[in-house]
């Protein structure tokens, strides 16, 4: 099947790299970033796209835009991995809507459109008879969406808890290990590339809240939005608070929790015992799913990273290829 890739940042480059290295029976026929795009029905040379990006700052040519690619006939599956904009989900939301309207499958890592318009987009995909998959939006490499949609079929999911933001987890881990202040640990995370220059989105818990909304809407068919989540970030946590937790063999972690029976969607720093399965170190993510049949399941893995997040995108692409390839 033919793949168009929108976004050539960390995740986009990871996807391109894997498509170039592995023989997955998928052809990259179009690619674009914010500065330009390129279409080649015969298949794009991935090394050339990387060298153009390095030389000119765009993987394509300035005259062709992402939207031109969306509106073209060059692809069967759109991979939307442009940066997330939490306010309106754009430009990804427009890209995804158009592609679905043109009966194309969509795979995305973009939390904005999925958190803002989950119901609209899934309904649209269903009506159009195409797939909309978004494994990479939540917890990077952990296949949590696939597990919830397919692996746990027949189960009733009663609750979800998790450490879903690697930046916050890194900061809290460093405060704990080295006795750093919040500002010191944040500075270190920024130096290591784990935190953005403006860390608000991560440290205020918004990123975790978006992921929680996506999970809740996926599992329980809710039509929840950010406004429905009670959010407290980690930016007010003191080294003394962490010390007080450690004195009792516990730790502080930013936890997202969804419990529909209590009508609860909450993101907040919490105290958890040292031997708790959700207590992961560094940038790792961890998620516990509570079900009626399977009991409690906990998944631990890398929540971010170029290749790790691309792994989730590739999984979605191959799922679509298995289901739809060869169909008219």
């Amino acid at each position: 099947m033919r793949v168009a890739l929108l976004g050539f940042g960390s995740v986009g480059q990871g996807v391109a790299k894997i498509l170039g290295e592995k023989d997955l029976d998928l052809t990259l026929t179009a690619v674009a970033d914010s500065k330009g795009g390129i279409i080649d029905p015969g298949g794009i040379s991935i090394p050339e796209a990387f060298s153009r990006k390095a030389k000119s700052g765009t993987c394509g040519r300035p005259k062709l835009s992402a939207l031109d690619i969306v509106n073209s006939d060059a692809y069967d599956i759109l991979v939307e991995v442009t940066p997330t904009h939490i306010d309106d989900g754009e430009p990804a939301l427009t890209h995804i809507r158009k592609a679905l309207a043109l009966h194309r499958h969509v795979v995305t890592s973009n939390k904005g459109p999925i958190a803002l318009a989950h119901r609209e987009l899934t309904d649209l995909a269903r009506r159009q008879g195409v797939a909309l998959r978004y494994e990479a939006t939540v917890c990077g490499a952990i296949p949590i969406i696939h597990t919830l949609q397919h692996g746990l079929l027949g189960n009733e999911v009663k609750a979800l808890f998790g450490v879903m933001n690697g930046t916050c987890n890194y900061i809290l881990t460093r405060m704990e290990d080295e006795g750093l202040t919040y500002d010191q640990a944040l500075g270190e995370a920024q130096e290591m590339g784990y935190a953005e220059k403006d860390p608000t989105y991560d440290v205020k818990g918004l990123d975790t809240a978006l992921k929680l909304v996506i999970l809740a809407n996926t599992v329980w068919g809710m039509d929840a939005g950010l406004k429905d989540v009670k959010v407290t970030g980690i930016d007010l946590i003191t080294p003394q608070a962490i010390q007080l937790a450690m004195d009792q063999e516990t730790a502080i972690r930013l936890i997202g929790e969804a419990i529909p029976s209590k009508d609860l969607l909450r993101v907040s720093p919490r105290i958890i015992p040292r031997n708790h399965p959700l207590l992961v170190e560094g940038t790792l993510n961890a998620l516990t799913v509570v079900t009626d049949l399977a009991g409690e399941l906990t998944f631990i893995g890398k929540g971010a990273g170029s290749v790790e997040t691309a792994s989730a995108v590739i999984g979605d692409l191959l799922f679509i290829r298995e289901r739809y390839a060869g169909r008219p």
Partner: peptide
Amino acid sequence: LVVEPLEEW
């Protein structure tokens, strides 16, 4: 700010 324990399910 109150940091509460995560209760066992």
